[in-house]
């Protein structure tokens, strides 16, 4: 009988993450039910103010907007990442393509955002070209717009979606696509009915890796957006650093945590769900089998 050393091995990790993850999270929960201190900080007095503030129309609007922007950005990202990951997995020059995706991915996040500031700025790359070619008379406002936020979010998180999709599709047996085609499926049908169900895991991973950070985005709207494109993340940061309203910061953070967790749970449920029609038909087939067993057709 081997000794159970699990606690010994995992001990340091349990300790570390309890202190620096679980406890801070609990503190946030606690703070969200306290009253705001006069000069930052909290007063040790129970209050629902911070939670009431979450329900104000202004905040509901910001939350909905953040959700919609995250959704749109994620869908665009996946729509680009899925064919890209597929092509990379089937390519003979896999390593080169991976390199071309990973180099931007490894390049500092802020520098990548900055690059778009250079491209979209009033005196930037695009406007420079437009002015020089005489297509416009004065520079267009491209930066600090909602469109810029969306574009840069997609740009920044594309590799997060491409890489898990690539690695899932790379493990996919492409003979299955040939089999589907052979059995009468068009290219699109083969993709939808055979490829997608078999790479569900990769799609969910890609969705999570894009949606969650975008939902909590802070730096991108701050740098390439304007006041109107502020997202929940910016709101939280402002409450913490400018308004110094700790309970409100806490309740907002929990709101984001809550939405994120719900999203994850829904996705997990979806992923685990069997295909209803397939199940039903299998049951019918079993009936058929039983009938046949008792006397045949």
């Amino acid at each position: 009988m081997k000794r159970n050393l699990g606690n010994l091995y995992a001990g340091p990790m349990i300790l570390w993450l309890t202190v620096f993850f679980t406890v801070p999270l609990l503190i946030i929960v606690g703070f969200s039910f306290l009253r705001k201190g006069l000069y930052g900080g909290v007063e040790w007095q129970a209050s629902l103010d911070a939670w009431k503030a979450v329900g104000t129309p202004n905040l509901v609007a910001v939350t909905v907007k953040t959700f919609v922007v995250s959704m749109v950005a994620t869908v665009i990202t996946l729509a680009l990442a899925l064919p890209t990951g597929y092509r990379m997995a089937r390519s003979k020059r896999q390593v080169l393509l991976l390199l071309l995706v990973i180099v931007p991915f490894w390049t500092n996040f802020l520098l990548r955002v900055f690059a778009w500031m250079v491209i979209l700025g009033n005196n930037g790359f695009v406007n420079d070209i437009l002015l020089r070619t005489g297509l416009v008379k004065s520079s267009l406002r491209l930066l600090n717009t909602q469109g810029a936020v969306l574009l840069v979010l997609v740009y920044v998180y594309l590799p997060y979606a491409i890489l898990p999709l690539f690695s899932t599709i790379d493990k996919f047996d492409f003979t299955l696509l040939e089999a589907a085609r052979d059995l009468g499926a068009s290219k699109l049908q083969a993709i939808v009915r055979v490829l997608l169900p078999n790479i569900k895991g990769g799609i969910f991973a890609a969705f999570l890796f894009t949606f969650i950070p975008i939902f909590g985005a802070y730096a991108v709207p701050l740098l390439v957006g304007d006041m109107n494109s502020y997202m929940l993340g910016n709101f939280i940061a402002d409450q913490l650093t400018k308004a110094r309203n700790l309970p409100f910061t806490a309740s907002l953070s929990l709101l984001v945590t809550f939405v994120t967790t719900i999203g994850i749970l829904i996705l997990m449920r979806l992923q685990a769900a069997p295909e209803r029609s397939a199940e039903a038909d299998a049951a019918i087939a079993a009936d058929y089998a039983a009938a046949n067993g008792n006397g045949g057709r």
Partner: peptide, 24 residues
């Protein structure tokens, strides 16, 4: 296209769809 040829294949690796039952 392969799906229009009236020809079907039994693949060496079988190529059964892993996400579908035998029936499906």
């Amino acid at each position: 296209e392969p799906n229009k040829r009236g020809v079907n294949t039994v693949f060496q690796s079988y190529a059964l769809f892993p996400h579908l039952s035998v029936f499906e």
